[in-house]
Each structure stands twice: as structure tokens, then as C-alpha cells.
Design a protein around this nucleic acid. Structure first.
Length: 213
DNA sequence: ACCCAGGGTCATA
DNA sequence: TATGACCATGGG
């Protein structure tokens, strides 16, 4: 796809997902829900320094303590519970070595059944922790392709994923790089539209949202 | 002081 | 099924 080539030549390889192990990638996928990655890094660093970045430690520890450790990532009470649910599932299924033998669909369904793991989080894990050819759709992907006029605004998650996967064919390497490039482009260039378009055009906004005073 | 960020769940209608 | 409320920190 042309969009992919142009992004790649503009930005170069992104080397995703940042993380030292598949498990760390999965933890990061939960922690980064609606959250800036820089905040997630602090949380993961705190887990490492406390030497608890493994499923067993997280399951054993109280939600209270876990919430304190991941505090910088935001939504810490909710995410502490989500991490515990996820790690419990992870252990029950026999860990990474066991999960690695599962087929894509079964693995995805099983992940989605974990409380706190939605489509994007599951697909992050599938692509970046298990190297499965699953295309990740996120807010950046949607925004960029809406702006390009290539999709309509209310296109659903599964419809978009199916579209990308059909066009690109099953290719883990391309999916990996493409998603990372879309995030990069979304952050740097394809910024969100202003809330009040009027404020971009005039100095005195009738809605009063331009904070003068 | 606002807005935003690599979402997901839950309660309503 | 389709909206809205809620979760919470750190950076611009």
C-alpha cells in the first residue's frame, strides 16, 4: 500500500514494540490503554525495580500495592485489577510457551474473554508479543484514514481490521511496522482536530472557549 | 487552566 | 445498539 511506503520512507523503521520480553509487552499493552507511553514507561520501570514484573508476583500481590507501583500510568486502580485478571489468565493457560501453540482465533477469543482486555489490547499482544499476523486498529489509524477520505468516520473495529488484513495479506512484519508508523505520524503530524473550529479562524470566539483573561 | 494520550467497562434508553 | 460517564496521571 502506498500509504505504508510513504510513511516508511518519511520516518524509517520504528522498532516496535519497546520492551524486553513478550510478557513485558503484554503488561504494557494493558497499561497504555488511553495513556501516553511515557507514563507507561515509569510504571513498568517501577515494576522492574520492585522485581515483580512477572505473572506470579502480580497475582500474589495485593491490588493496593500493585496500584501504587503502576500509579504513573493513570487509571491505576482499574489497571491494577485488569493486570491481575490478565496474569491469572496467563498462568491458568500455562504461560507463554503454552499459549504460543494456540491458533490465532482461539488465542484472540481467549484474550478477549479476560476482563479489561478489549480488541486493541488483545491485538497488540497478538502482534507484538506473539508475532501473529493481526493488524492493530487504534485511534490514530482511524483518524489518519478518515482524513485521507479512505474510510468513513464510524467504521467499526472489526471492519477496519478485516479491510487492512485483506488488502495487505497476512504479514506480521508489515503489520508490526505499519501500526508503529501510523502512531508516529498521528503524534507528529496528524493531530486531533480542535474542539472549537471557530477558535482556529477568529480571534474572538462566540463560544468563549478562547481563554482571554 | 485546558487538552490530550498507543481503551474498556458499565449503566441507561 | 448506541450513546455517555467513568477511570487518573503527566506533558504540552
Amino acid at each position: 500500500m502506498m500509504v505504508y511506503r510513504r510513511l516508511l520512507s518519511s520516518y524509517g523503521k520504528q522498532h516496535w514494540w519497546p520492551g524486553d520480553s513478550p510478557f513485558e509487552v503484554m503488561v504494557g499493552a494493558v497499561l497504555t490503554q488511553n495513556t501516553a507511553w511515557s507514563n507507561v514507561e515509569r510504571a513498568i520501570l517501577a515494576l522492574k525495580k520492585a522485581d515483580v514484573l512477572d505473572a506470579q508476583s502480580i497475582v500474589n500481590m495485593t491490588s493496593k500495592r500493585l496500584a501504587g507501583l503502576i500509579r504513573p500510568s493513570g487509571y491505576f486502580n482499574i489497571k491494577a485489577k485488569r493486570l491481575k485478571y490478565f496474569c491469572l489468565w496467563y498462568l491458568e493457560q500455562g504461560g507463554h510457551a503454552s499459549l504460543e501453540r494456540w491458533e490465532n482465533r482461539r488465542l484472540r477469543r481467549s484474550m478477549l474473554a479476560v476482563h479489561g482486555v478489549g480488541p486493541e489490547t488483545a491485538d497488540d499482544m497478538l502482534l507484538y508479543a506473539f508475532n501473529r499476523p493481526v493488524f492493530v486498529i487504534d485511534a490514530y489509524t482511524r483518524r489518519i484514514f478518515v482524513r485521507l477520505g479512505l474510510i468513513v468516520a464510524d467504521e467499526g473495529y472489526e471492519a477496519m481490521r478485516a479491510m487492512f488484513e485483506a488488502v495487505l495479506g497476512p504479514d506480521t512484519v508489515i503489520y508490526n511496522e505499519y501500526h508503529a508508523l501510523l502512531v508516529k505520524h498521528g503524534k507528529d503530524v496528524c493531530r486531533p482536530a480542535p474542539r472549537c473550529a471557530h477558535c482556529c479562524l477568529v480571534t474572538h470566539c462566540p463560544t468563549g472557549q478562547s481563554s482571554k483573561k
